[in-house]
Write a protein that binds this DNA or RNA. Structure first.
Lengths: 237, 237
DNA sequence: ATTTTCAACTTGTATTTACAAGTGGAAAAA
DNA sequence: TTTTTCCACTTGTAAATACAAGTTGAAAAT
């Protein structure tokens, strides 16, 4: 019993977030009013509002003056990176995730297409590769690097039903605060063509991203190849 | 003298935002402390913090406990839609904007690839097309539709040096609250190939987006074709 | 000279209180 | 019955206050 060091508004945020994604509150319905939440959780309105603002910011609710807080699942632009998750990246088709490379500690690739800090380089990184498959067709190949800084027991965690980001946020208090990304349309080279099962020269969507977190010198780096023959990347933001 | 109806925290937000983008505060430097801002603008700390939180949210500053608020221009993922603006979409190359179709009132296309509400359909829309050129090469073709709801004098405005979004925000109090987007890599068809000056069959990046605003039934719709032969779309979020 | 301590800053969290403004339904008036 | 008014609810804005916690540099001790 140690993690009770979280501020109250974050506890409420996590609680409401969990209830929203797990379906306790239906999409389109109203959250309890701010005053009700005050009473139930024994906090004041600014504190409750602080939590609700975070939910608005993350797209889980939409507030309307005079009415209330409307529940708005499914959010998460970041979904396309969740390790085995709900993923709003693609429609509602059946989606299967194949881990090509389980999280493993290694040194950073040299050269690396992003600039990394000395601190990050010194600690090494955790590396993983995934292939995502829809209806038997591979659509999504991604390569991820995260710095191996103060993440006890990380590689031994099971990532079943939990996204990488949820684990980082709830277990290690690491929150994604922003990022940079580069998008291109490329012709598939032989390796990518083979992985994604498309003809050489066919267009693939290429994404490079660096995600900043609330921890200094802790950025998440991803490279993504996407087969957009039959699907599109779909994002909410 | 009427627009003084803006809440105090928004006034401070606009003021600081203006000063940041115009260079009064250099990137990496510190904003005046919260208590200083309280004194200067004659407001209390919660109000000042409300404004600063909005700036954090929009990526203009980054706060650090014990230190201060660090200026972090230039942000704006949305930059790729600004009508003639700073645009962080592409690197620092010279960028030229050609208006293929000046903002004009018309009825909505039929069929339209997004679902629109009855209200939006009844009011008609404002339509515009642009081509963006870097070093003599066209890289960016976009088609925009916004509903023609309560936008007095909109089509007669000059869009010099101001982005569409800045005008909507400061003149009409319309703020983008989120959106959906669909991304694909496509083979260029003859029309797009001609506009973007690339060979038929070469890959182009295709983006469809719908942006929600704080005004009900007021969404902004855009379709973008991007020539990623020599450039990438670069976004901060 | 070097290290340690501490005081003066900064932002972070939280309480309490008050009124403004939008929404929706029930009660009152037509 | 239909319309209008109004009240009780919601969120929005704002003040005044207090203490916690991280940062930095100067003063004090070694």
């Amino acid at each position: 019993m140690a993690e009770n060091k979280l501020p109250q508004y974050k506890k409420l945020y996590e609680s409401l977030r969990k209830h929203i994604v797990s379906g306790v509150y239906e999409e389109g319905s109203l959250l309890p009013s701010e005053n009700e939440l005050c009473a139930v959780h024994n906090m004041t309105r600014p504190t409750v509002r602080h939590a609700l603002e975070a939910l608005v910011q993350d797209g889980f609710i939409q507030k309307k003056q005079g009415k209330g807080s409307i529940v708005r699942k499914p959010p998460q632009d970041i979904g396309i990176l969740s390790i085995s998750g709900t993923s709003s990246a693609i429609g509602k088709d059946f989606l299967q995730t194949q881990i090509l490379q389980k999280p493993e500690i290694m040194s950073w690739p040299e050269p690396f297409h992003f600039e990394i800090s000395e601190v990050e380089r010194d600690f090494g990184c955790i590396y993983m590769e995934r292939l995502r498959i829809v209806n038997g067709q591979p659509v999504f190949y991604d390569i991820n690097h995260i710095p191996n800084i103060n993440l006890p027991r990380f590689t031994s965690r099971t990532f079943e039903n939990k996204s990488l980001f949820e684990i980082l946020r709830t277990q290690y208090q690491i929150e994604v605060k922003g990022g940079q990304q580069k998008l291109k349309a490329l012709k598939a080279d032989p390796k990518i063509g083979k992985l994604l099962n498309i003809k050489k020269g066919d267009p693939v969507l290429y994404i490079e991203r660096k995600l900043f977190t609330n921890r200094e010198n802790f950025n998440i780096y991803s490279t993504i190849y996407f087969n957009s023959e039959k699907h599109a990347i779909f994002g909410n933001f």
